[in-house]
């Protein structure tokens, strides 16, 4: 019995699941709960990957019969995805079935769910309706796709249950503002051409990353002043935004703002700082650093308020 448990502890997550399905006795033996975080990719050939660094083990479901029982590995510099491919008539339902079984067996959590809208042209609502009750409590939701319909993207945002981080990498045809739940802690918008100053200042998240916006250095000046006067972005821990004009950043973005230039800074992006860091103080005494950074070849502004004492 001890030897069996030793072997079971070594098994990869999907081998463990398969072992539990070998017989009723095997299912009874597999009652040791091994908590795993999983990554779920909702696309035409959906995938589940376990967060087992440095090798992520995964299963992909496809309709293509010739790919059944093959492998679809993906090497990365610091990670390796080892994926088994299964052929099923209905890939999404098969994936849901395995996920529910794995959840009952191992107590897994969804660390990350990526939704590739372009694979479900005009059918995103239907897909969301099919998966939302199964995939709940998502830590990090990422939405991909180019030139998608605004209402479909909004439907995903309104109906999926995510609780920490939202990454909107999708673009919409309409380029209109999106309604984003205030309950999440982190927001990343990759194609933020629709983001207005008022929209930004209404956000309540503690971590905000906005890229490809049309906001200017003058807008930055309004944002910084608003934070210093405690009128907006009060929960902010980290704010990053693309810089449209590096040349007049100090003159325009820090205009009429009292700041001190700090000699150096440590932490994320410290080696990418090209201008600053400048230290500004909120009216309650809390300080923040503002810097112009370059990474990898794009300039952006990073604002990091100090944690509250």
């Amino acid at each position: 019995m001890v030897a069996i448990q030793e072997v079971l502890n070594i098994l990869e997550p999907f081998d463990y699941i398969n072992f539990s399905q070998a017989s009723k006795r095997c299912r009874k033996l597999s009652t040791v709960k091994k908590p795993y975080k999983v990554f779920i990719l909702i696309k035409d050939s959906p995938e589940i990957l376990t967060n087992t660094d440095p090798i992520l083990y995964g299963v992909r479901w496809t309709k293509e019969k010739e790919k059944d029982a093959t492998r679809g590995d993906r090497p990365y510099p610091d990670q390796y995805h080892e994926i088994r491919v299964n052929c099923f008539e209905n890939p999404l339902d098969s994936m849901k079935e395995l996920y529910l079984y794995a959840r009952s067996l191992m107590g897994i959590e969804i660390g990350f769910l990526a939704f590739r809208m372009s694979d479900f042209k005009g059918q995103c609502r239907e897909i969301v309706d099919r998966i939302r009750s199964t995939f709940r409590g998502i830590h990090n939701l990422q939405i991909n796709g180019k030139d998608q319909q605004q209402d479909e993207l909004q439907y995903i945002l309104d109906n999926m249950k995510y609780n920490c981080r939202l990454e909107i990498l999708a673009t919409t045809i309409e380029r209109l503002p999106l309604k984003i739940p205030e309950t999440i802690k982190q927001l990343l918008i990759d194609n933020g051409s629709w983001i207005t100053l008022d929209y930004l200042m209404s956000l309540k998240m503690s971590t905000i990353e906005l890229w490809n916006t049309n906001l200017t250095n003058e807008d930055m000046n309004v944002i910084f002043k608003s934070w210093m006067e405690m009128r907006s972005l009060q929960n902010l821990k980290s704010f990053e935004i693309n810089l449209s004009n590096r040349g007049d950043f100090v003159e325009a973005a820090l205009k009429d703002i009292s700041y001190k230039k700090r000699p150096s800074i440590t932490g994320r992006y410290s080696s990418y700082i090209r201008e600053g860091p400048f230290e500004v103080t909120r009216k309650d005494g809390r300080m923040a650093t503002i810097a112009v950074c370059e990474y990898p070849s794009e300039f952006f502004v990073a604002m990091r308020p100090q944690p509250p004492v």
Binding site: A3, E6, N9, I10, D15, N18, F19, A22, R71
Partner: peptide
């Protein structure tokens, strides 16, 4: 030994494992 036993069923279906 347990590693080797585990490797025997790597990527196998429930039926194959049985």
């Amino acid at each position: 030994c347990c590693k080797q036993v585990a490797m025997m069923v790597k990527g196998k279906s429930p039926e194959e494992i049985r």
